[in-house]
Amino acid sequence: MSLAVRASPITTEHYLIVAGLLFTIGAVGLLVRRNTLIMFMCVELMLNAVNLTFVAFAKEMNDAHGQAIVFFTLVVAAAEVAVGLAIIVAIFRRRQGVTADDVDLLKG
């Protein structure tokens, strides 16, 4: 353990920076990757980053509301994954592929 690491206590800002970087990684991944399954995983990363922010502020303010909100995010994420994967399976039945470029029938 280096001196610099020992000298600085971990504050809310540290957690916020980690959450911000994780959100950025998820957002860039969503834009760069075109495999729909991996795009879904990137959305999960972004949701997790937001959860981390909620919990960090809950600690900062010593308030349980921030942690209760995380449960709602979790439920919405679970429902989103279930419905999204069902849509992917349904698409895969009709055309053999789940790349985002395969699904452009609504493009006009």
Partner: peptide, 20 residues
């Protein structure tokens, strides 16, 4: 603990990079 935080934060970000 600061040491634990930095190690775990690195794991979080490396895992995220791995997904991408």
């Amino acid at each position: 603990n600061a040491f634990v935080f930095y190690v775990v934060a690195a794991l979080v970000l490396l895992g995220g990079l791995g997904v991408v």
